[in-house]
Amino acid sequence: MPKLKTIEDLQQIREQARRDLQVRTETGTRIIVGMGTCGIAAGARETMHAILEELKRRGMEAHVTTVGCIGMCSREPLVDIEQAGRPRVTYCNVHPDMVPRLIEEHLVHGRVVQEWALGRVPTEGIGQG
């Protein structure tokens, strides 16, 4: 039985999904890892593994999700950190050995690691013109 039987069902799912996303962004910590082919080729799988390990080690809860390519392939692996409604910050060229410092400084102390930061992503998306 399909999950959506009518158009109204679609609208409900949409509202729910938006709210879920809002909860997650406003109350939790989201770590977003670019996992297009460019990211994978640059080592994003290893970076993600390092992130999961580090979070486990510190007993931290964060929603780790993967996305496709955001276009800046030359700077992959790209990792975004979004904390409780604070601006989502993109870090570039994130190799596994950089992960502990990122978690320590950004997640724990709330300080952006300037030398690795690329940009802030507005919630509606980038460069819509």
């Binding site: 297009g36 996305v67 276009g71 998306g125 980038i126 460069g127 819509q128």
Partner: peptide, 18 residues
Amino acid sequence: FYKKQMRIILRNCGMIDP
């Protein structure tokens, strides 16, 4: 890199879990 771009077709790439 992004200043002159207009991401219409790519609006969701990098923003959602595909």
